[in-house]
């Protein structure tokens, strides 16, 4: 089940959002639950705390109450990184850039400029990518680490340092673990391509078995492809 949570204190805008949802969501999928709020409330807090199903939050940044849309987004992201957030706003560009990055906001839609079309496209995109916001969560005594599966490209094992090295789109993390332990924390998009490598198959652009390497969608060439794992890889790819 997917829930749409609309938080908008302007009745006219709320009506427009209702119309878009009726057109795009309700007509296509019956397993949809939509709730409307005008402000932050105890009931809304309970909905945020319930992470058992996927949600799409559509909310205004500037609510008339003390708690703004940004504050609600902050509360959501404290416990839930799988739900999507869409802001309906007239905020300036600079804040948009910051919050888009920090709170993983799917989109900022301007209230008075083509809002219906943009909202419709966003919802379609969210359904298309199927809420792919699952995360790898690892903790040690120093730090808690959470990374979207989709942003992990591959994971290798460093024999000398005896650590696993998680390669993501922008960073590299070293952890005192072994490959089999970390593979249990991953989903089925990850497959073993080498004795010392697990790769996100959705991120592989080319498998080159004769030369024992694969190329990622980022263009990076990775020399961790072993023929020993060819059958398993070809079975799922």
């Amino acid at each position: 089940m997917t829930s749409f949570i609309v938080i908008e204190d302007d009745k006219k805008t709320q009506e427009t959002i209702k119309e878009v949802l009726r057109r795009v969501v309700i007509s296509k999928d019956h397993n949809i639950n939509i709730k409307y709020y005008t402000k932050y409330s105890k009931e809304l807090r309970e909905i945020i705390n319930d992470t058992s199903h996927r949600k799409v939050y559509i909310m205004d940044i500037e609510l008339e109450t003390k708690t703004s849309g940004i504050d609600i987004a902050k509360m959501i992201r404290e416990i839930d990184w799988e739900s999507e957030i869409i802001f309906i706003t007239s905020h300036d560009k600079m804040f948009e850039t910051v919050y888009r990055s920090i709170y993983e906001v799917f989109d900022f839609i301007e209230k008075f400029y083509n809002m219906e079309d943009r909202l419709e496209k966003d919802i379609e995109l969210i359904f298309k990518k199927n809420f792919d916001n699952k995360m790898l969560t690892v903790s040690n005594r120093n730090v808690d680490l959470q990374i979207f599966y989709r942003s992990i490209t591959y994971i290798t094992r460093d024999k000398e340092e005896r650590k696993v090295i998680i390669h993501t789109d922008s960073n590299i993390f070293k952890l005192n673990m072994n490959l089999s332990d970390i593979s249990q924390l991953l989903d089925d998009r990850f497959i073993q391509s080498h004795r010392s490598c697990i790769v996100n198959r959705q991120r592989v652009h080319e498998w080159n078995w004769p030369k024992s390497y694969f190329i990622l969608d980022t263009g990076e060439k990775v020399d961790y492809l072993s023929k020993k794992f060819k059958k398993e890889v070809e079975k799922v790819c």
Partner: peptide, 15 residues
């Protein structure tokens, strides 16, 4: 909260 682009050894962080 900041964006970063590094190679981090999580077991050594803060040591």
């Amino acid at each position: 909260i900041n964006t970063f682009n590094e190679t981090l050894d999580l077991d050594k962080l803060g040591t």
